[in-house]
Write a protein that binds this DNA or RNA. Sequence first.
DNA 1: ATCAATTGCGTTATGCTATAACGTGTGCAA
DNA 2: TTGCACACGTTATAGCATAACGCAATTGAT
Lengths: 132, 132
Amino acid sequence: MNAPQLTRNQALVFDVLEKAEGPLSAYTILDKLRDQGFRAPLQVYRALEKLLEYGVVHRLESINSFVACAHPGEDCHSHGIVAFAICESCGQVIEFHDHEVDHRLMSWVRSQKFKPAKTTIEIRGTCEACAA
Amino acid sequence: MNAPQLTRNQALVFDVLEKAEGPLSAYTILDKLRDQGFRAPLQVYRALEKLLEYGVVHRLESINSFVACAHPGEDCHSHGIVAFAICESCGQVIEFHDHEVDHRLMSWVRSQKFKPAKTTIEIRGTCEACAA
DNA sequence: ATCAATTGCGTTATGCTATAACGTGTGCAA
DNA sequence: TTGCACACGTTATAGCATAACGCAATTGAT
């Protein structure tokens, strides 16, 4: 799925995420967009839904937050499973891909005849800078 | 962390999870325990907190739910990273472990000097039985 | 024995996350 | 020009989680 022209709301939400240091919750995004006329959570959630579909934004399940994809331009869905390391101290997120991990998980899945739709890999901990 | 004697509330919550077909939300657990005197979410959350700590219950981040560990008796924390396949149709959860996946993730983590605290691997999709 | 610290528990209130349901307007294809 | 798909706005509500208070029981050191 490649991203078509974004609508105004989608562009505003994406812009906020791209300029953010780390992941943001939907309500934080909402607050940042009040000046542009946003008034309700749904305006954010609807934009996010599309951005997720286009693969330009990721959802971090373990912290109910959203980040812009680390590969601007490219179609992130084609990189295989996306994994995240989330620093619980500074909030920074590192996105990475490991084909061997993909391969192992997909081979398990095949052996079980399980049909995967969406896979989440998130490592919460402390980044090098925060480790002290 | 091995599980000490459970308190009454912890035992009740654990019992509900063990007898359940699939994962349950905290509020679902609460409803199932109203007859035993449960009245507030915190009673459930506090019990869950301990059960998670003891490693006898897992939290499924992607669906805000909880399941009893598939290895009764053993200390699940010693199996390495726990992974889950969650059927979005019937709700059943399969817990599994793959040392190669652990190894790849931990080696990435080491290379980044990232200190992992808690790792989540969840595959949502459709199980064999539900695939039709 | 007594005091202090810890732990579990109950209750009330609140905050955060997400979606349902309704209606509007716009653009486009049959 | 009518019907459909889609984005949007608004209000209301549902679902998930924790803060803050106080009380009771346990334990362990003095």
